[in-house]
Design a protein around this nucleic acid. Structure first.
Length: 347
DNA sequence: AGCCTTTGACCAGCG
DNA sequence: TCGCTGGTCAAAGGC
């Protein structure tokens, strides 16, 4: 049994994430979200309300060669089969994720774990769509369709976000996988995702009520203690070794007064952030400046952060990895978790 | 001095 | 009802 576990662990490590090991061979079932995931994700429909084409259409648009993959399943399979394939996965349906109590097991889709394609990956089990090989993240990000998906963001961040995405993309191309996953607990709708690398400005405007889970994967052991900068200050209040994961999970709370937001961060032995899950919505604006010198400095473990766009961007560049989180608050009354992960490509 | 991290223990939910 | 697991608490120590 020990041996087996070791093997599993190794596999897990290689895939960077290990949550559930089910359905390794089964083909993913694609269920499209009732709404464009972008819209769901950035609720408020800020820019998405005008988004008419369905997810499939979007996907279709993304793939110049539809013949290669005729269905989502095939798309997934294709992406999976091709190590070099970049995959963007978005799930439309997902089991409710209990905010804090145990929903973490299914955060990552086993498919992703097993295959770790080397590209941009956005996941949302169980449904998902992928960008097959041949389509680089850069292409994807560059694609009007892609931005169309996330137009809300663009609307808010404009080129800044685009640039950020480009940056992430570039990084992804260099050897990192970007995986984004979102999940919603109360509403069964799945929000989808976008990787939002370094935001110059927190995207919290219209999304204040959703729970967000952000996944992060870094290929470099940068600040092991600093999971990500999302513009808020966090205080670690616990750490645990969760079952099914080789990595310890840290629990953070937003240090802002009555802010109920919490986040869970999983890190690999290398100190790489493998997963960041946000829960709750900030009821305050992100601190513009770090009030704590420490934060800037070494940062303590939290992302206390300086969400200063400049600082952040700079730091991202310096660290060579990106990631950030963002607050998504849309579906207001519903608890929504969104996870975003940047999975480094094994090198 | 204040805040944060660490870490073991406790509690609650679930099968 | 019991055991397991995840989440939270709280004391101690550090920066």
């Amino acid at each position: 049994m020990a041996e087996k576990e070791e093997e599993e662990q190794q596999q897990t490590k290689q895939s960077l994430t290990s949550k559930s090991s089910t359905g390794g061979a089964s083909r993913p079932t694609i269920s499209l979200p009732p709404r464009p995931f972008g819209e769901m994700f950035y609720s408020g429909g800020v820019g998405f309300s005008g988004f008419s084409p369905g997810p499939m259409t979007l996907v279709s648009n993304m793939f110049s060669d539809p013949d290669e993959f005729k269905s989502f399943s095939q798309l997934v399979a294709g992406a999976v089969a091709s190590p070099a394939a970049a995959a963007v996965v978005a799930s439309a349906h997902q089991p409710p994720v209990s905010s804090v109590g145990g929903g973490g097991d299914s955060l990552l889709d086993p498919r992703i774990k097993q295959n770790r394609p080397t590209g941009l990956m956005i996941t949302q089990p169980p449904g998902m769509f992928t960008v097959p090989a041949g389509l680089s993240p850069a292409t994807l990000l560059d694609s009007p369709s892609f931005f169309g998906l996330f137009s809300p963001i663009q609307g808010s961040f404009g080129t800044t976000h685009q640039q950020a995405l480009a940056q992430v993309t570039a990084q992804a191309v260099h050897g990192n996988n970007v995986q984004i996953q979102s999940e919603s607990s109360t509403q069964q709708q799945q929000t989808s995702l976008t990787e939002v690398p370094s935001f110059s400005a927190p995207v919290q405007d219209q999304r204040d009520n959703s729970e967000v889970t952000v996944y992060e994967h870094r290929s470099q052991p940068q600040n092991a203690d600093k999971p990500a900068d999302d513009g808020y200050n966090w205080r670690k209040y616990g750490q645990k070794q969760v079952k099914g994961s080789d990595f310890p999970r840290s629990y953070y709370k937003c240090t802002h007064g009555a802010c109920p937001v919490k986040k869970k961060v999983e890190r690999s032995v290398d100190g790489q952030v493998t997963e960041i899950i946000y829960k709750g919505q900030h009821n305050h604006e992100p601190p513009q400046n770090n009030k704590r010198g420490r934060d800037n400095d070494n940062n303590n473990n939290n992302n206390n952060g300086s969400c200063n766009s400049l600082n952040k961007s700079k730091r991202d560049q310096e660290t060579s990895q990106v990631t950030t989180t963002e607050q998504i608050s849309e579906a207001s009354d519903s608890e929504e978790h969104t996870k975003m992960s940047l999975i480094p490509r094994e090198g």
